[in-house]
Design a binder for these strands. Structure first.
Lengths: 132, 132
DNA sequence: CAATGAACATGTTGTTCATAA
DNA sequence: TTATGAACAACATGTTCATTG
């Protein structure tokens, strides 16, 4: 019980400095999966595109690890399917979607992440005020 | 030449995600040293106090490493002195202050850090917009 | 005990490799 | 080549230890 609580806090806050990349990606992936059931590589391309103005290019490995974590936490579930026309294309991809209980869990995660995001924005804005 | 440029960019941006803690601390330490010549442990206490509302507690080891880096980069210089009354107190502390060329270098560093801070704030605000 | 700094250990992220279709 | 995932390497940060006065 206590361990679960602690690990969750750790997951979000880390060491008290800024948000870890993994948490950041998990938040985005929840939103993207909710919007459209897709597969790992697709989400990476989408995210790189979204963050082009910021020069942030999440690696494929981080995307996969994030999706795997969300699956292990019972928020997302996987389903393997063929991408295009099954007659010409045989590549089996791993699509992600919410589990039944996933929505509730995701809602909680989002809520906690909002607090974290606000905290981080606050810290960075403070840094601008303090140093400029 | 190229190596210097590269290492500086790396120093600031890291991997394209958020600002590394070390860079964040170095920026603050430049400001604190400029305000008052002090020693490592003092700066740690000061920073922990400043960030109390955000729950961020930089470790002593990170403070020292940051100060050492700023010294190696020729921005700060060290001077050993006794803290209180030399008759009763013999603890030798390491105080930091700017070198002659340090001000110019610091100005450049700050300038680059401002860009980085704005980028990070932008990314986090985008995350709020995109996910909430 | 306060202060410094190095050594060591862990955590986090990135790169490379193996496999499959 | 696209896609997945594991193994491995590198980097960033935190904890512990030694030393000094």
């Amino acid at each position: 019980m206590i361990l679960v609580e602690d690990s969750k806090k750790e997951n979000l806050k880390g060491r008290g400095y800024l948000l870890r990349q993994r948490s950041f990606l998990k938040l985005y992936l929840l939103t993207l999966v909710e919007k459209k059931k897709e597969y790992g590589l697709h989400y990476q391309k989408e995210l790189i595109d979204m963050f082009k103005p910021y020069g942030y290019k999440p690696t494929l490995s981080e995307i996969y690890k994030s999706l795997h974590e969300l699956s292990q936490e019972g928020i997302l579930k996987r389903s393997k399917k063929i991408k295009g026309d099954p007659k010409t294309d045989f590549q089996e991809l791993v699509y992600y979607q919410f589990t039944e209980s996933g929505y509730e869990k995701a809602k909680l995660y989002r809520k906690q992440m909002k607090v974290e995001l606000d905290r981080c924005i606050g810290m960075l804005q403070k840094a601008v005020q303090d140093n400029y």
